[in-house]
């Protein structure tokens, strides 16, 4: 089976589906909103006359962190990843897919590639537009410019987070198979279970909290600030350094992808 042909087929499925464009728009809106509210929130306690040298926006680290919010659309990259495989079963198209290309390993590798590329594209597009929105909003305030490396780091963060989150989404979609259940599981884990575990472990001063999913993502997102680990707001435990966080997230994704591959290879298609 021609791998390029399978990639082309997967690409067509994505660009033809309206949900892809809605999720890209959602990622862009979410990231743009995340960055746009930052100057408002950061300067909320300041009178207009005080907005000058004392403003948080005159601190380059704060401005860099504000631009870091441009990568906040990674949830949508994860949802798209889940839909790439679980969506086949939800829509009933898995039969046609595996009849056209019965070598499951090739199809699954094509889906892994597309999930990574889709996550990357979603993050790059949404981060670029959000950074532009951030620049426009920031223009209304007195501020310092971000550091020279900020946009390079932002791009790197968008690429890594897009690939990793796309793959994690795909893996969970492959393991759970039911599209709605897989997306609900991902979001419940991100917004409910993981934060609760973080808070509980953090309150016990348990170092395990920094190995949890959301802590690693927060650590990964610190790529744009510096290589120094920052603090978890829900506990006194520090996040792991960005590169370690990335390595662990890639490791988690690899384990999930391997598990998803082994289950999908054996599973009957219905």
């Amino acid at each position: 089976m021609n791998f390029a042909a399978l990639l082309k087929s997967e690409f067509r499925k994505l660009i033809y589906a309206r949900s892809t464009w809605w999720l890209l728009a959602g990622a862009t809106a979410f990231a743009s909103l995340s960055i746009a509210v930052m100057p408002v929130v950061l300067t909320a306690g300041f009178t207009s006359s005080a907005l000058g040298a004392g403003s948080p926006l005159m601190n380059q680290d704060v401005v860099n962190a504000m631009y870091g919010k441009a990568t906040a659309g990674y949830y949508f990259a994860m949802i798209l990843g889940a839909m790439i495989l679980a969506g086949e079963f939800a829509k009933g198209t898995a039969i046609a897919t595996f009849l056209a290309a019965p070598k499951r390993q090739s199809v699954l590798f094509a889906k892994i590639t597309i999930a990574a590329l889709t996550g990357l594209a979603v993050q790059l597009v949404s981060a670029a537009i959000a950074a532009l929105v951030g620049t426009l909003v920031l223009g209304a305030y007195q501020h310092v410019n971000p550091s020279a490396s900020a946009f390079g780091d932002l791009t790197l963060t968008a690429i890594i987070s897009g690939v990793v989150m796309g793959l994690i989404g795909l893996s969970v979609g492959a393991l759970i198979k039911n599209q709605t259940a897989s997306i609900v599981t991902l979001l419940a884990w991100m917004f409910l279970i993981d934060p609760i575990l973080t808070a509980v472990l953090g309150s016990m001063q348990n170092e395990g909290s920094k190995y949890l999913f959301t802590s690693l993502i927060a650590g990964m997102m610190d790529l744009h600030i510096s290589s120094v680990a920052s603090k978890n707001p829900m506990s006194s435990i520090e996040f792991l350094p960005p590169l370690v966080s990335v390595a662990l997230l890639v490791g988690y994704a690899a384990v999930l992808v391997a598990t998803a591959l082994s289950t999908s290879m054996r599973r009957d298609i219905d």
């Binding site: 042909a5 082309k8 087929s9 690409f11 499925k13 198209t93 046609a96």
Partner: peptide, 9 residues
Amino acid sequence: LLVLTAAAG
């Protein structure tokens, strides 16, 4: 159908 033609070459 275009999805299928792509996959099957």
